[in-house]
Computed example of a mutant assay.
Amino acid sequence: MKIWVDADACPKVIKEIIFKTAMKRSIHTTLVANSSMYMPDSPFLAFRRVGAGFDRADNEIVELMEAGDLVVTADIPLAAAVVDKGGVGINPRGELYTTENVKACLSMRNFMAELRDTGVETGGPAPFKPNDRHTFANQLDRYLTQRERED
């Protein structure tokens, strides 16, 4: 299993958790973004820069990932594509995207987008809170521990 990170919009505190986890558990992890960013030096961490453009990083992740991989993203359409390819997604707030829930998440996202397109104020996502960091770290640890037991 590899971890892929949709890194452009991923909060710095979440990337730091991912770095520590990848190095501690020896999991190959690749950040994909269209701008350079800091990463610690580790044989388990890699960076792929893609050109600017809509969904370039998302498309790169879907193309390169394999069934069983974990993708960190807040982008629900990307999470749906990951799940369709046999992977699992996790957003920076710790919600797992699986075959059981990703279609419902995508439907809700599309519904809210339609509302916004008609001029309805939906308020957008809540601000990222310190508790979100803990929820993400705990969910990531639970998921990886479960995967280790299955292997």
Rank of each mutant, 00 (worst) to 15 (best):
L64F: 04
T73V: 08
K103I: 09
E60Q: 10
S42W: 10
P125W: 08
D55E: 15
V72S: 05
A46R: 12
G68E: 06
I14E: 07
A52H: 10
A67M: 09
D6L: 08
W4S: 00
G89F: 04
E148Q: 12
Y97L: 08
A9Q: 14
M23H: 03
T30F: 04
T30L: 01
T99L: 13
A126K: 15
I76F: 00
D6I: 00
D132R: 07
L115G: 09
I76L: 10
R48A: 04
T135L: 12
R48W: 02
G124R: 10
P130L: 04
L106C: 07
G87F: 03
D69V: 01
E100G: 11
M108E: 13
M23E: 15
N131P: 09
D132A: 08
I61K: 05
A33W: 00
T29G: 02
T30W: 00
I76R: 09
T99D: 15
K12S: 14
E63W: 05
L31V: 06
K24V: 13
Y143F: 12
L45C: 11
N91F: 00
N138T: 13
N91G: 07
C105V: 07
Q146W: 00
A80G: 10
A104E: 12
G119I: 00
F111P: 01
F54G: 10
E148N: 08
N138Q: 15
T145C: 06
V13Y: 02
L140Y: 08
E66G: 14
L144F: 06
D141H: 08
A33N: 13
E114C: 07
K129R: 15
T145P: 03
Q139A: 14
Y97M: 12
K12N: 14
T98R: 05
L96R: 02
T73G: 06
A104N: 07
A80C: 09
A57T: 05
I61L: 09
H134W: 09
V13K: 14
N110V: 07
Y143A: 04
A33V: 04
A57I: 01
R149Y: 09
R109N: 13
T135Q: 11
R48F: 02
R25I: 01
V13R: 13
A67G: 15
E60T: 03
R116V: 05
K15T: 03
V72K: 04
A113Q: 10
M112A: 07
G53E: 07
N110R: 12
G123Y: 04
